[in-house]
């Protein structure tokens, strides 16, 4: 299966996200075609400061994908995912804005029509593959591995159309499919990690992260599974020197890789700040 791929700025530097995504996609036969010459989507920072540029940035990414003949864009970051979707939604409703955005894009010979599906890789794996396509690659028994599925904010919210807004289960299903145990009563699964506010307002965001970690630890999860580089970073880094009980924070692609028998080294699990140990 072939998809357009928007890696976003934080994918490469995220702890093993790239390596595990590539390895797992290869095994599953998912071909991720990188959008050529993509730019930063702008995210919250541009929504908070600019009225037109905030749309031009995501529209350029989508226009480049259209030029490459791609009809779906797969994201690996919640913020990129919601930014592209938000831009797409507003540009479909506002002709005047759409016109302005296209005027700007024309400077580079690009055109945005919006005729694209914006997806997230985790949801693509669960929705587009059969359970058997995934299960047939399992090499390692993870039946004793309890995984806390942490969804963060900008995947199900604000639209809540790919999953339940208050209690999403897509990643829970994925955890089950690879033979591990999703932590069933993980009430912090959609709490906010504080995103970029962690930089300027660390004191206010630490309690948010502590809750996400504590809820997993106290319910005996062995790892927290994430699907966004910023969530992964905050929940992982907040434990550094916190003195509280720690739990490793991995990407869903690393969890899949473990089940598929890839080594911790291949999945770059040594890059996590909270050390990972698979004790099944």
């Amino acid at each position: 299966m072939k998809y357009g791929f928007f890696p976003g700025c934080s994918y490469k530097g995220a702890a093993g996200y790239k390596e595990s995504t590539e390895a797992v996609s290869r095994l599953l036969g998912i071909e991720l075609v990188e959008i050529q010459d993509w730019n930063c989507c702008g995210a919250t920072s541009y929504w908070s400061t600019q009225s037109i540029e905030a749309y031009v940035l995501p529209a350029r990414i989508m226009a480049l994908a259209e030029k490459q003949g791609l009809s779906e864009i797969v994201n690996v970051c919640n913020a990129c995912y919601s930014t592209l979707r938000k831009a797409q939604e507003k540009l479909a409703q506002d002709n005047d804005l759409n016109e302005k955005v296209n005027l700007a894009l024309a400077e580079e010979g690009l055109k945005y029509t919006g005729n694209l599906n914006i997806r997230h890789l985790m949801e693509v794996i669960v929705n587009d593959l059969n359970a058997d396509d995934i299960k047939k690659h399992i090499k390692k028994d993870l039946s004793g591995f309890v995984v806390a599925p942490y969804y963060g904010c900008q995947l199900n919210r604000p639209w809540a159309d790919i999953d339940d807004a208050h209690y999403p289960v897509l990643m829970d299903r994925l955890i089950e499919m690879v033979g591990a145990k999703p932590l069933k009563n993980y009430s912090a699964k959609t709490e906010c990690c504080g995103a970029a506010h962690m930089v300027a307002h660390k004191d206010l965001c630490m309690p948010l992260n502590n809750r996400i970690v504590k809820d997993a630890v106290s319910k005996s999860a062995q790892t927290i599974c994430t699907l966004c580089p910023l969530c992964q970073f905050n929940v992982d880094a907040s434990q550094y020197k916190s003195g509280l009980p720690m739990v490793p924070v991995i990407f869903f692609t690393q969890m899949m890789g473990l089940a598929f028998g890839l080594s911790e080294k291949d999945l770059k699990l040594q890059k996590l700040l909270t050390p990972f140990k698979l004790a099944v």
Partner: peptide
């Protein structure tokens, strides 16, 4: 960096112009 940085910056420049007049 994006490769076509000239093109990218032209796009942003135009967006800024449009932002100013709106």
């Amino acid at each position: 960096s994006v490769k076509n940085i000239d093109g990218f910056q032209r796009v942003l420049k135009k967006a800024k112009e449009l932002e100013r007049v709106s």
